[in-house]
Design a binder for these strands. Structure first.
Lengths: 162, 162
DNA sequence: GTCAGTGCAAACTTTTTGCAACTAC
DNA sequence: GTAGTTGCAAAAAGTTTGCACTGAC
């Protein structure tokens, strides 16, 4: 699906959501949705704020960003993650299901896909719980940091031997 | 394993960790470890702080709690979660692997176990990544909130019809 | 005796809130 | 017209940091 198509579709979904729930269709809300669907990967509120400032077609306050993103989460158009310090968000419509690898050393987050894993999670029977979405976070050390650490250990050992 | 045994074992593991990494073995650190291993389920820094104040055998500052908990995470004795506002922690030694269900309405977190799911995750091949641990968060609505919501919808419809 | 670790308070960051002004309906 | 939204600034909540003091080694 093309980017423009996706944007149109999510705008429509959002409109329906706003109507159903008796919220107003303000230009701020659509501008935020549009900007989010221009971003690839994760972003936090501050990044989104700067982005919207720079693109200068619309200036919204942080408070509005926080308010709107809650609506978008409820409309299932955005999902929220919480690795690192600040909350991270990402668009969720028309996006492949993916999992997250988080390096505990450098904090780098990478995504990967795995169908077996995905179906295992989706086929899990939940008791008295209505699934909305899920997040799998795998913590560990990325290849880069593993190598850096090994190097450091060697250095330390050399020092001790001196 | 009995609680006391577990506490002794983790104290030993911690001692080894501190020795290996050239950290001091302060009474504060052991008191914190002990308190954490008295807690069932999740806790945040503030809860831990109050707990240690009340048990009055040891008073530690929040700063020390933050410092120590990083050591405990590195020693693989504690794991960190980030649902809700503040970081949540839990002991990890001698604890069954479990997954988390998070209600997006009321924020309640429940744990569940599922072997098929667990082995699916553990058998996933990761490229250039050294796994330490993982967290699966399932978001949705708990039975209670689903029922409360249905009730609310019925009420709203009645109002509209009037 | 030395320096890592601690307590305290201040600083910082992220998110929430109160309120006046605005505007979608 | 009026209530839901917005922007702003202040407040709150969680975490980090600087510094003097303490105590583990």
């Amino acid at each position: 699906m093309e980017t423009q198509n996706v944007k149109d579709t999510v705008r429509q979904i959002f409109t329906e959501y706003l109507n159903t729930n008796g919220h107003r269709k303000t230009p701020e809300r659509y501008a935020i949705l549009d900007t989010i669907y221009s971003i690839d990967g994760h972003f936090d509120i501050d990044t989104l704020y700067s982005l919207m400032l720079n693109q200068e077609k619309f200036r919204v306050s942080r408070a509005t960003l926080y308010n709107t993103i809650i609506l978008l989460i409820n409309a299932r158009l955005v999902i929220k993650h919480q690795f690192g310090n600040s909350s991270q968000y990402e668009k969720s419509y028309n996006r492949e299901t993916h999992h997250h690898q988080i390096c505990m050393q450098c904090g780098k987050v990478t995504e990967f896909q795995n169908e077996a894993l995905q179906s295992a999670i989706e086929n899990t029977k939940l008791t008295r719980f209505q699934l909305s979405h899920y997040s799998l976070y795998i913590y560990g050390m990325c290849g880069k940091c593993v190598r850096a650490n090994n190097k450091k250990k060697v250095n330390n050992n050399n020092k001790k031997e001196k």
